[in-house]
């Protein structure tokens, strides 16, 4: 079997979980001791660190998957059946953490949301404090969802309401359905485009992390700007996703 890639990448991150192995005293890594290979008690590290990765958003999912399977095998409770009860418990905990970490990181949107969470971004708080600011200054609050999208959403909701009414009375208006379908197609296109946009912000975020790794100081404002852009695009995307879901529900059974 190939020598574990896990131990090599994990070795690069030992400083974060800088503790020593409970068994042999050597430096430990997130899951196993680098020296004696024994399973370690779960350390409170984030999911990126768990896989020995920097907090960058462009990641190679194929490599992640490979590491996930390798770690899964090693942490499998059956394999640790002959170990002490402490070790068995740890391997179980580590396994479940591994699953959470993998599920979160492999999905591009969940990964982004997780990073925002790590960076302390609170979506609802942002909206609330913006309202409070508007109250204090008398300025009009800048809406997260751009006005033209709101108009579109509102109009489409009106049409959906009409469609639901018609369905109740058994009427059928093909022109209305065609109109809604057209709207839906446009929204789906927008949804795709937003993912592209998000990826462009990944790039700027990753560039920032790389600069930090190279020892350069990154101004806090720049960091915040990169995060804000991601929040903004995710918000718009959520909005459209919910709307498309509503459209699908309303269209169901009407064709």
């Amino acid at each position: 079997m190939s020598k574990s890639t896990v131990s090599t990448i994990a070795a690069a991150r030992t400083h974060d979980a800088a503790e020593s192995c409970w068994s042999c005293g050597a430096m430990r890594v997130a899951q196993f001791c680098g020296a004696c290979g024994k399973v370690q008690p779960p350390a409170p590290v984030d999911y990126f660190s768990f896989f020995g990765l920097p907090p960058k958003l462009n990641l190679d999912v194929a490599t992640l998957e490979k590491e996930f399977y390798e770690l899964s095998r090693k942490l499998h409770p059956d394999l640790n059946a002959r170990a002490g009860s402490k070790e068995q418990e740890w391997s179980l905990e580590q396994s479940s953490r591994l699953n959470d970490a993998y599920r979160t990181l492999k999905d591009p949107i969940k990964r982004t949301q997780y990073l925002l969470h790590l960076e302390g971004v609170q979506l609802e708080e942002q909206s609330k404090s913006a309202t409070e600011k508007a109250r204090a200054t008398g300025e009009v609050k800048k809406q997260i969802v751009p006005p033209d999208l709101l108009e579109e959403v509102f109009e489409l909701n009106m049409q959906l309401e009409e469609l639901r009414m018609e369905k109740k009375t058994g009427e059928d208006d093909p022109a209305l359905i065609a109109e809604i379908e057209k709207h839906k197609a446009a929204l789906e296109q927008k949804y795709e485009a937003l993912f592209q946009e998000l990826q462009s912000y990944w790039k700027s975020w990753d560039g920032l992390i790389e600069r930090e790794q190279a020892g350069q100081a990154v101004p806090a404002g720049e960091r915040k700007q990169a995060l804000d852009k991601m929040v903004d695009v995710l918000n718009r995307r959520n909005y459209i996703r919910n709307l498309v879901r509503d459209v699908n529900e309303a269209l169901e059974g009407s064709s």
């Binding site: 979506l123 909206s127 969802v145 709101l150 959403v153 996703r241 709307l243």
Partner: peptide, 13 residues
Amino acid sequence: GLVGAPECGDVMK
């Protein structure tokens, strides 16, 4: 006033 909540997708006029 037309506003929307991205948390839930609500729209309010």
